[in-house]
Design a binder for these strands. Structure first.
Length: 440
RNA sequence: GUGGGUGUAGCUCAGCUGGUUAGAGCGGUUGUCUGUGGAACAACAGGUCGUGGGUUCGAGCCCCAUCACCCACCCCA
């Protein structure tokens, strides 16, 4: 028989049960937090008209989109992020009450060269608030980031914040040509990576004058307490109305964040933060961790024009994306969470074919009592093999229903961790199993 | 898209300067053990040495190409 090649597409992964345990645990925590803030669930198709995604995120992003012709010769594409589909949904459902708060946990696809912390199919956990231009919306999104990261054990991270308006002002104030603005953003974004000299060199290479480059560097190198940096920024950009507005926005947002119950110390105003996606119009932010080096684990910002690209009627929106696999990489590397067990709580063994129905009924009784229970589905008999099965899967309780027990209307219940085993009347089985589960 | 590294069993690897039938540990299955897991012992299964070509009497080992994976750049979650 000819065999099919056993191969996965590059950058695509299988998630085995041991992987799923952690993934689901983490997404469940995020979901809990999102819902506790009143965000509602949303899902959209993986595949959409290519046009939906085009002209939204930027040139760079577009080259990374999976696009192709379907059987009906339609130009289609796999979603590149969850933000653009949200904008499309808002435009298609103008009756949705605003402000609209939604979360969306789903895979996205990018045809990049895979490497550490980077895959072609990966999951984003997005929260967005559509239809509010108020600082409280930005503040709530920002506050949720540390709440989520803390919930999965993160201890050291920084949420960098900047504002596109400040960036635009920076380009104007330093005397660059308007068409050089993009070059400036590109270069300064690498400040932390290549240092001042590296950024300066790159700006000169891209045709900026030394005087302009130095002025850019002066502003971008500001660091320290957020209040101080904001104050200095305001002075340096005083002549620029939009830039000053951007600074004030950050000030009012950061002033509100502590009221959400998060420690403001993790937020760092970072004038060099640019972010690549074209649709951002106001504050932008991303979270970085120093160890392990996985790049940013979250990214987001305010995009007030994107919905308007679909409906003609702009809706101010702010949101963020948490990168599931990078967060998992950190959690695994630093052993921040114990992966939960995904096996059943109890295994009911089958002694022989004749008594198997009784074992099946016992498992059903356990389930009715709120215990996840499976009956061994391999060949009956050979208790040794069945206990080994429970052991391998990490099932903490095994039940044995042999002739001796049946004669007395009992069942033997074995605590797989301690090896202790006692017989109890069948009716008491759920109670006994629960006791073992609680103590382990 | 650009640069670098690596490809031998499911996993981690060994394989002496090219020399008969390619090995180990772990894992898997089965048995010792037709009423008891984690241990031990034994057996078995599993490999066209990534693929194609070349050099050679002879290639897992040398050369070329190609593919895949990893790392970095670009960009990003």
């Amino acid at each position: 028989m000819p065999r099919t090649t056993v191969q996965r597409l590059r950058g695509f992964r299988d998630f085995l049960p041991r992987d799923m345990a952690l993934r689901e645990h983490i997404t469940a925590r995020f979901e809990e937090i999102f819902r506790s803030h009143g965000f509602q669930p949303l899902d959209t198709p993986a595949l959409e008209y290519a046009e939906t995604f085009e002209g939204k995120s930027g040139q760079e992003a577009e080259t990374l989109m999976y696009r192709f012709l379907d059987h009906g010769n339609r130009r289609v594409g796999l979603r590149y992020d969850l933000t653009v589909p949200l904008a499309r949904v808002m435009a298609m459902h103008p009756d949705l009450p605003t402000p609209f708060k939604r979360y969306h946990i789903a895979p996205v696809w990018r045809a990049e060269r895979p490497q550490k912390g980077r895959y072609r199919e990966f999951w984003q956990c997005d929260v967005d608030i559509v239809g509010s231009d108020q600082p409280i919306a930005d503040a709530e999104i920002l506050a949720i980031i540390p709440e989520c990261l803390d919930a999965v054990g993160f201890e050291r991270y920084r949420v960098l914040i900047n504002n596109r308006k400040v960036l635009a002002a920076l380009a104007r104030v330093s005397g660059a040509d308007p068409d050089q603005a993009q070059h400036i953003y590109r270069s300064i974004d690498k400040l932390a990576k290549v240092g001042r000299e590296g950024v300066r060199e790159e700006m000169l290479e891209r045709g900026l004058s030394p005087a302009t480059a130095d002025r850019v560097l002066e502003i971008v190198s500001l660091s320290g307490e957020s209040d101080e940096v904001l104050g200095s920024l305001l002075e340096l950009l005083a002549k620029d109305a939009v830039g000053s507005e951007g600074v004030e926005e950050m000030r009012s947002i950061l002033a509100l964040v502590p009221s959400f119950g998060v420690d403001p110390a993790c937020f760092v105003v970072t004038p060099s933060l640019a972010r690549g996606l074209d649709y951002y119009t106001g504050v932008v932010f991303e979270t970085v961790v120093d160890e392990p080096r996985v790049g940013s684990v979250t990214g987001g910002g305010r995009y007030d024009e994107l919905v308007g690209q679909f409906s003609g009627r702009p809706l101010p929106t702010v949101g963020t994306s948490l990168g599931l696999e990078r967060i998992i990489d950190v959690v695994e590397e630093l052993r921040l969470l114990e992966p939960p067990r995904v096996s059943a709580d109890a295994l009911v063994t089958t002694f022989d074919d004749e008594s198997t129905p009784e074992s099946v009924r016992l498992a059903a009784r356990l389930r009715a009592g709120g215990i996840s229970a499976e009956t061994y589905v391999g060949r009956s008999g050979n208790i040794r093999r069945q206990l080994a099965y429970a052991d391998r899967l990490g099932i903490p309780v095994a039940l044995i229903l042999g002739p001796d027990e049946r004669a007395r209307g009992e069942v033997a219940i074995r605590d797989m961790r301690s090896g202790e085993q006692t017989s109890v009347p069948c009716e008491q089985a759920p109670e006994r199993v629960l006791t073992i589960l609680e103590t382990s």
